[in-house]
Design a protein around this nucleic acid. Structure first.
Lengths: 356, 356
DNA sequence: CCTCCGCTGGAAAGCGCTTTCCAAGAGGTA
DNA sequence: TACCTCTTGGAAAGCGCTTTCCAGCGGAGG
C-alpha cells in the first residue's frame, strides 16, 4: 500500500488532509466547504450541508492550512512580539500579558528576542513583516541614539502602509501607538521618598544611557531632586549593564567615588539586587540601617529578597495586554498613547538616613 | 493619484511589493528572480542577473511573502513552543534557550502559553499544525492522568505523519524525542544531602500530583530516603500549587501536622520561596538554624534570597536549546532521549539538623 | 401567468510563490 | 562539421485556500 513517502517527486503536498478532500467526502463543492467551516464570507450555508461538511471535517481530522488561508485572505492571525530577553522578568511579564490578550482574540503570537542587539530588532521586524503578522508589539525600550533607528522607522512605516499595525511599550521618539509607562513619575516618586526620609547623598545606578527607559527614569529622579532643593551630580550616577552583575559593579564604583552615600536608587530591580549584594557582601554595609536601596519594576521576587526591596511597581502585564488590545480593537487614525501609572512600593530596603 | 486604499474591491492584495514586480524591474522572469533571491532550488543564476535581481529587490524594499512561500514549498520556518506560563522563570529559561537555538537556524518561534489548562495544550498544538510549524517543543510537564492525553498523542501522531516533528522537555509517557531532566536524580541528591546533615524528619511540599515532573521528583526523594534507612510517610508530603503562595500554604500545613520537622524539601524554587516566607514570617523559625529549606530548579534569584537558597540546578536554558537542535538537526528514525544532569547547589538555607 | 427578488450552491479566478520541464546556447569531443 | 553534454533562462503548472460571479430555484407581487 502506498505510504506517505512514496509520492511522486512532482507532488509537493504534505499529505495533510485538504479542504478539497473534505468537500468531496461531504459531497459538496470546495466553495461550500470553505464557507461552512470558515465562512468569513458573510454567506450562509444550508443547515444540512453545513452539518455534512462539519461531519466530514471531523471524520477526516481536517486541519486548515493557515499559510494557504493567509495567502488567499491576505491577512493572518499572528501577532509579533519583540522583546530584549524573555528570561528577564520585566519582559516575561509583558509577554505574559500580551499572550493573554492574544488568546482572547484567538491569535497566535510569534516572539523574537533581540538580546539587546539593535540590528536584530530590525531583522525580526522584517521577519514578522514577511510572515504578514497582523500587528507587532515592540516591547524593548527604544535606543535614543542609533543609526538603526531611522531604518527601523522606515520599516515600521512600510509595514503600516501594507496594513500592519505597530505598537510600542514605552515611549520611542516616533509617533506610534504607545503604551507608555510612567518612568519619569515613578523615578521622581522614588527619589522623593528617599529625600523625605532624610537622604541627601543619593547615588544612582543606571542601565545603558541609550535606552530611553533609562533616560526617562534618570530624568525623573534628577528633576525631583532638583525641585526639592537637592541635586544629582554626574559623579553620583554610574552606568552599568541592566543586570544583577551590572548593578553590583556599578554600586562598587559608586561607593568608591563617595563612601558617604546614604542611599542608592537602582534604575531596575535586577541592578538593585546587585546593589544589595555589593553593599551587604562586598562592602559590609547594612541595609537599610546604613544605606537604603530602592529598585524599579517590582519583579516577582522583590518582596522575598532580604531586606525586602522597596521599589516602583510598573503594571507590566497590563501593559502587554493593553498593547495588543490597543492595536487590534480599534484601528484609529491618529497615534494613541496610553499612560500606565507607576506605584511606589515601600518595603524594608529603605529607611531613614543615618546622618553621619 | 491612486493610493493604497483605492484598490478595487476585487483586489485582495495587500499592496506589498511582490516578487513579480521585482522580476519585472530587473528585467528577468519570475523564476529567475525566485532563484536569485531564495534559490533553494539547487539551481544557479548567472552573476549578472543575480546582481540585477538583488538590486531591484533592494530598491523596491522587497520582503518575501512567507505564507506564499510556505504554500509553495510545503514547509515553513517556524517552530512552535508550548509552555505553561512564560512568566514562570522555569519556562522563561527554557524559552530563552529555545529561542537562541532557533535564531541560529534562522527560524521564527511561535509561542503558546497554556496556563496549565490541559485542553489548551491540545488546542495550541492544533494551531501550530495549522500554521504548518516545522517542529514543536512541548515544554510543559505532561499530565500523568488526563483524558486529553490520548487525544494529544493522536494529534502528535497526525502531525508527525505530515512531516512535523515534536520534542518534549521532560519525560512524557509517549515515545517521543525527549530532552529529559534528571528530576529523580536531582531530588535524590537533595534528599540525601539533607539526610547527611542529620535531618530525619523531612517534610516535602509538592506541586500537583498529575505533573510527571512532580511525580519524578517525589519518587526520587522517597527512594533516596528509603535507601538511607529513612522514609517519607504520606503525612509529610503536602501538595499545593507550584507557586510561591502554594509553597507558603503547604508549609503551614506541613508544620501544623508536625511541628518537629527539621527540614523542608520544596519541589520547586517558587514553593521554596513560599516556604521561606512561611517559616520566617508566619512561623517565626530561623532558617537554616531551626529548619533547613531546599529548593529545586535554581531560578536566577535563588542566590539572592535570605538565606540564599540551597537548591538543585537544572540546565533549563540548555534544555531549550537542545530540544530545538535535536528536532531539527538530524531527524532520526527512532525516538531519542537526551538526559541532562541536575546539580546540587548548596547555599545558606540548609544546615545541620538541630536535634531537639 | 409573468417578472423580479432573495437565497443558496458551484465554477473558476486568483493570492504570491517554487519548481518542473523545455529551449537555447556554449563548449567539448570525434 | 556533427553530435552530445552541461548550463542557464523562462513558461507554466501547481500549492490550498477565499471570494467573485453566475445559475438555478422558490416565493412574492403585479
Amino acid at each position: 500500500m502506498a505510504n506517505a513517502r512514496s509520492r511522486s517527486r512532482a507532488d509537493r503536498s504534505t499529505g495533510a488532509v485538504t479542504l478539497q478532500q473534505v468537500a468531496r467526502q461531504a459531497g459538496v463543492s470546495l466553495a461550500t466547504a470553505s464557507r461552512a467551516l470558515h465562512g468569513a464570507d458573510g454567506r450562509s450555508v444550508g443547515d444540512e450541508l453545513r452539518r455534512r461538511v462539519q461531519a466530514a471535517a471531523e471524520e477526516l481530522s481536517y486541519i486548515s492550512n493557515a499559510p494557504a488561508q493567509a495567502l488567499a485572505r491576505a491577512t493572518t492571525s499572528v501577532v509579533g512580539l519583540i522583546v530584549h530577553d524573555v528570561a528577564d522578568p520585566y519582559f516575561a511579564a509583558i509577554a505574559a500579558g500580551a499572550m493573554r490578550a492574544a488568546r482572547e482574540r484567538r491569535l497566535m503570537v510569534m516572539i523574537a528576542a533581540t538580546f539587546r542587539e539593535p540590528g536584530l530588532e530590525l531583522e525580526y521586524l522584517r521577519g514578522l513583516r514577511a510572515q504578514r503578522a497582523r500587528a507587532v508589539v515592540l516591547a524593548g525600550s527604544g535606543l535614543a541614539v542609533s543609526a538603526d533607528t531611522e531604518r527601523l522607522a522606515e520599516e515600521i512605516a512600510g509595514f503600516e502602509e501594507e496594513g500592519g499595525r505597530v505598537v510600542c511599550i514605552g515611549d520611542r521618539g516616533t509617533d506610534l501607538d504607545t503604551v507608555a509607562l510612567d518612568n519619569r513619575g515613578g523615578a521622581a516618586g522614588a527619589a522623593r521618598s528617599l529625600w523625605d526620609q532624610g537622604h541627601r547623598r543619593i547615588g544612582v545606578i543606571a542601565g545603558p544611557r541609550e535606552l530611553t527607559t533609562v533616560r526617562h527614569r534618570l530624568d525623573g529622579a534628577r528633576r525631583a531632586l532638583r525641585s526639592l532643593g537637592g541635586a544629582l551630580p554626574a559623579e553620583r550616577v554610574v552606568v552599568g549593564d541592566f543586570t544583577r552583575e551590572g548593578g553590583r559593579a556599578a554600586t562598587l564604583e559608586l561607593f568608591a567615588r563617595d563612601p558617604g552615600l546614604t542611599a542608592v536608587l537602582a534604575l531596575n530591580d535586577l541592578m538593585a539586587i546587585g546593589a544589595l549584594a555589593a553593599l551587604q557582601q562586598d562592602l559590609g554595609r547594612t541595609v537599610p540601617k546604613q544605606v537604603s536601596v530602592m529598585g524599579f519594576d517590582d519583579v516577582p521576587f522583590a518582596a522575598d529578597l532580604r531586606p525586602a526591596l522597596s521599589t516602583v511597581r510598573l503594571p507590566l502585564e497590563a501593559a502587554g495586554e493593553q498593547a495588543v488590545r490597543l492595536i487590534l480593537d480599534d484601528p484609529a487614525e491618529a497615534p494613541r498613547r496610553v499612560l500606565l501609572d507607576a506605584e511606589l512600593v515601600t518595603r524594608a530596603s529603605t529607611g531613614p538616613a543615618t546622618h553621619a
